[in-house]
């Protein structure tokens, strides 16, 4: 929320906007981000040392976000959960074998692993669909849960609009709004400058707006007809 004097008082939904007009980040937010980063680094270090409590912490912080990233792409809850489990097993294996070299960039690493796993699964499903039945891949999708505050049509329209984005724009949208990553981490994950990521996010929102507008216009035009105010 713009002008909110206490960044910590913002709700997660407000924090997740990524759309505020305030260009600067307040010092309070910076120190909060720093303390969060330090806390995360400590948890990761303890997890790599085998601390069960640290693993519980990591799983509770990230399991649902990883699941959301997978489910948003695959639309198969059971497969999304399987991927979530395998992602964490990969993390544990890497951390225990001292193969983890992403100090200070845990989130980008975590979501890169997630994206790779999801990509592998999509490729595998496409191969199977081609080999057996071209229509089977489309039929995999299960009915998605409707988000609070969005009716079924609105969420379906939004999903359709997201599907029209190119891969690069969609990656930013997914990582930002589904993975709830900050822009700095997204830039690190995609290995692109922060400015490029911000510009891409802005452009993607404009594309979504353009894709959603015809629906909005149509509903605006339909409403008067139903009321009989237009001939």
């Amino acid at each position: 929320m713009r002008g909110d004097p206490d960044p910590a008082a913002r709700s997660p939904a407000d924090d997740g906007l990524g759309s505020g007009s305030s260009p600067g980040v307040s010092p309070g937010s910076l120190s909060e981000a720093d303390s969060e980063a330090a806390d995360l680094a400590d948890v990761v270090a303890r997890a790599s040392g085998g601390s069960e409590r640290a693993w519980e912490d990591l799983v509770h912080r990230y399991a649902r976000r990883v699941y959301a990233m997978a489910n948003a792409k695959l639309r198969r809850p059971e497969l999304a959960e399987e991927i979530t489990q395998s992602v964490f097993v990969t993390l544990a294996t890497k951390l225990r074998s001292d193969a983890y070299s992403e100090m200070g960039r845990f989130e980008p690493w975590l979501f890169r692993v997630t994206m790779n796993r999801v990509r592998d699964e999509i490729r595998r499903a496409k191969r199977q669909a081609v080999a057996h039945d071209p229509s089977s891949f489309a039929g995999m999708a299960s009915a998605p849960a409707e988000p609070a505050g969005l009716d079924a049509n609105a969420s379906a329209g939004l999903r359709d609009a997201i599907a029209t984005l190119n891969d690069a724009d969609r990656a930013v949208i997914d990582l930002r709004h589904t993975g709830q990553m900050n822009f700095k981490d997204i830039a690190a994950l995609l290995d692109e400058p922060l400015g490029t990521v911000l510009a891409r996010h802005h452009r993607a929102l404009k594309k979504l707006k353009a894709a959603l507008e015809p629906t909005t216009d149509a509903s605006d035009q339909t409403e008067p007809d139903e009321k009989g105010t237009r001939s």
Partner: peptide, 15 residues
Amino acid sequence: IAHRLDALGLSEQDA
């Protein structure tokens, strides 16, 4: 639109 995307993203976490 960003608000709507956030709501959609949160709904995906409904595991």
